[in-house]
């Protein structure tokens, strides 16, 4: 019986053009490249993923137990913080940037809008210790988890003993984040010839390939690079982007090229959330680009789009919406463990 099931899964994988990553059921399209994340250093198990999921949703990570990862990364918005241009954290304080949507993180070579974080495992440290986000220390979080009624048991199940360390905590959160794979949009179905675009979407896709895809490269719709996309500096924030990290003026106002999957759900847009609607984003690229010295080379040629073309382009962008991802129960609040 078991063998038959395994065989059926294998046949299913072959037929459906999806492949598995590692020993855990992380299913991705066949044509996706090898992940950047080294799964051998942190092999996925369902127990560790569950632990990471509980940690992701638990405000125990913040100083006064009010803010969890999910506060700024909610599933219904593709794990971002909608309605707020800038995300807010502990004591209603406002941060400097718009929290990014979380998906397909195993293919990132760095994290944050400015690439300040070099590894997914280390990502959670930044919001935990940021004074306007969670204002905590990882050492104190570990102490709180040790005294909690639920965590020693969850760590025991995940690691074979109930010892709680920073390393285990961070790797578990990584495990959950690594499972956040979005690959079931209409666009994916079209790629697998199981669906077809409408005429409008098809036209939008052509416009996208012509004008956008050098930076927003398929299949993740990002080139995993940092670009200056010609946004006017917000004088109240004075955010210099990647230059903060590198101290190099070549990186002035460079920000990560965001992924576009689920863009319909993850408004507002840009690193500071200045645009509430996709139409405004396209208007920026056609009419608003500031000609900085280090403006992205890919934006040197003016992008021309008629208003009808913009409508078509947006229709295509909506085909990147993945409702299976937004409603996947494996990613939702673990209400049987956290109350």
């Amino acid at each position: 019986m078991k063998k038959t099931v395994v065989l059926l899964i294998i046949i299913g994988l072959v037929v459906s053009a999806y492949k598995k990553i590692g020993s855990y059921e992380l299913i991705v399209p066949n044509n996706w490249p090898k992940p950047v994340y080294d799964f051998n250093r942190n092999p996925l198990t369902s127990e560790k993923i569950l632990l990471g999921r509980v940690l992701f949703y638990d405000p125990i990570l913040s100083k006064d137990n009010t803010i969890s990862c999910s506060s700024c990364h909610s599933q219904f918005s593709a794990f971002t913080h909608i309605d707020h241009p800038l995300s807010h954290g502990i004591d209603n304080q406002i941060g400097k940037r718009n929290s990014p949507a979380l998906m397909n993180l195993a293919w990132n070579s760095s994290f944050m809008w400015d690439g300040a974080v070099n590894h997914l495992d280390m990502q959670a440290l930044a919001p935990i210790s940021n004074t306007v986000e969670m204002n905590e220390t990882i050492g104190h979080v570990v102490e709180k988890l040790q005294q909690s009624p639920i965590y020693p048991q969850l760590f025991y199940k995940a690691f074979g003993d109930s010892i709680i360390t920073g390393e285990r905590l961070l790797k578990s959160i990584s495990q959950f984040m690594l499972t956040l794979v979005s690959c079931h949009s209409k666009y994916d179905s079209v790629q697998q010839k199981k669906a077809s675009f409408t005429t409008q979407e098809k036209n939008g896709y052509q416009l996208f390939k012509k004008n956008c895809s050098s930076c927003h490269k398929e299949p993740f719709f990002t080139n995993d690079q940092f670009e200056n996309n010609g946004l006017q500096v917000d004088t109240s924030l004075k955010d210099i982007g990647r230059m903060m990290v590198t101290q190099d003026s070549a990186n002035y106002l460079q920000f990560r090229v965001p992924k576009l999957r689920n863009i319909q759900y993850s408004y507002p847009y840009m690193h500071d959330g200045r645009f509430a609607k996709l139409k405004q984003v396209l208007d920026h690229y056609t009419n608003g680009v500031v000609r900085y010295k280090n403006l992205s080379k890919l934006l040197l040629k003016t992008i021309n789009l008629t208003s009808n073309e913009k409508v078509d382009l947006i229709a295509f962008l909506y085909t990147l919406s993945d409702t299976a991802f937004i409603f996947d129960k494996r990613y939702s609040y673990p209400r049987d463990i956290l109350h």
Binding site: D38, R41, N42, A116, V117, N118, H119, L120, D121, M122, L125, A126, I128, S129, N130, T137, I138, G139, V142, T165, G166, E167, R168, L170, K171, S174, V245
Partner: peptide
Amino acid sequence: NVSGAMGGDLDPMKGMYWAWQS
């Protein structure tokens, strides 16, 4: 420095790891 979370003396809870920038 670029290999992710590690344990023992390298555990970030030892307070010898920058948070805002890896």
